[in-house]
Design a protein around this nucleic acid. Structure first.
Lengths: 226, 226
DNA sequence: TTTTGTTATTTGTTATAACATAATTTTTGA
DNA sequence: TCAAAAATTATGTTATAACAAATAACAAAA
């Protein structure tokens, strides 16, 4: 094969409709565009994305299978509604999984990734100052997963992602209180410090503090909204 | 409501075909009845269970979404084929998740559950002596999940189950070497001791040793089978 | 007004057919 | 004999229709 041909990117094989529906739903969930407890019917999703029932159903049920959506016994699918107990459970799980990812990532992460993480965090601080919490949600996601990706553990990554999706719908509940996430910025600074020093234990600890901080903010937001 | 009505059992709502297919596949996977790398086509599953493509596809894709099956980019679904790297990753994840489940279970487990676990372990020893590794696989599953269930963390349980399903097809590879699993029985004894003393840290450690022991047996089985 | 039974509507379930692509086999030509 | 091409088969994808179950809306009775 000629070098010119080899240098070409493989044409993005047209994804299936089912997958595209799933990707769109996932993006919407992780951007917090759904409200907790909202019902997602097959037909509503199908007509919203202009596909038939089959791919809409596939997307909804696959997301439910990973835990990103909540499927009840009658087959209806809802956005997760979290109780204090559920948040506590999720926090315990995330501490274990993301702690592991952080430890492994610290061993492997490249200088370039560290500087990328710093850039993202700079943007994140700007977004915070501008009260642009839409961007903040997205950048926070990018910041964490840029680090986690370096652990080179694909199964672990998928599990962590599904944990994040479970709380996605509450981002809009928690982020508007800007007073509370000043601490969140401190946590990110601690994460970056540990990253630069490549101290895996310190990184893991900083990540866990960040998780627990977010969880307590979420819990109090839920308790007061009730 | 009348007392007569109150005494009636709620009618077990007939499961959907999709769910029944999924349950059957899951049971077969966790019993090790499939070989690693085996291809599961939609039509083969549909005709084997005498259903149409729709529920067969739903079951396969949902299991793939949880990681129990391996879905490749062209949509074909396979039984997982594990490499050393993948086993290592899975072991790390399981140590975290099952360690957590064990710690929490130790806090909550009832006397009855402990004696149930002992009974299962007795049967397990008998199955071992009879070289009945089919029963052994099943009893080992029961033993572990009886304990884990006590943690009262439903999301965690599902994650642990999907980890177990990933290695299901290798059970028949690993168990026939009976010499190696004498240690496995010792591990179970240690687990029961920690359980009876309700020492959460000791239980967690015993479980982790069991996991790592199984992993190393699996790794060497794979390496030698190659 | 509250309860209860009926009807209508919504929504999940499943089989089927048509289609497109990937894999395999067969055929053909050098 | 071998490799390329063509045909065939296998397999995944999707829309649709018919069905069943759950839910909501409504009307009649207590």
């Amino acid at each position: 094969m000629s070098n010119a041909l080899k240098s070409l990117e493989p044409v993005g094989r047209s994804e299936t409709l089912g997958r595209r529906v799933q990707d769109q739903l996932r993006a919407a969930i992780m951007a917090g565009r759904f409200s907790p407890g909202e019902k997602l019917t097959i037909r509503a999703v199908a007509s919203a994305l202009d596909v038939s029932l089959t791919p809409a159903r596939e997307a909804l049920y696959n997301l439910a299978a990973t835990g990103a959506l909540d499927m009840r016994s009658n087959g209806s699918v809802y956005i997760h509604e979290l109780t204090k107990d559920r948040i506590d459970e999720l926090t315990c799980i995330r501490v274990e999984l993301e702690g592991l990812a952080a430890r492994e990532a610290a061993k492997r992460i490249s200088d370039k990734n560290i500087s990328d993480a710093e850039k993202i965090n700079d943007q994140l601080i700007k977004a915070h100052n501008k009260h642009d919490y839409h961007a903040l949600i997205d950048l926070n996601w990018q910041f964490h997963f840029l680090i986690y990706q370096e652990c080179q553990m694909p199964m672990l990554l998928r599990m962590i992602e599904s944990c994040w999706l479970m709380t996605g719908s509450y981002l809009n509940v928690i982020y508007p209180d800007f007073g509370k996430i000043d601490h969140g910025l401190d946590n990110h600074a601690a994460i970056l410090d540990a990253l630069k020093a490549r101290k895996s234990k310190a990184l893991s600890k900083a990540i866990c503090i960040d998780i627990q901080f977010a969880a307590s903010a979420l819990t109090s937001a839920i308790e007061s909204n009730r």
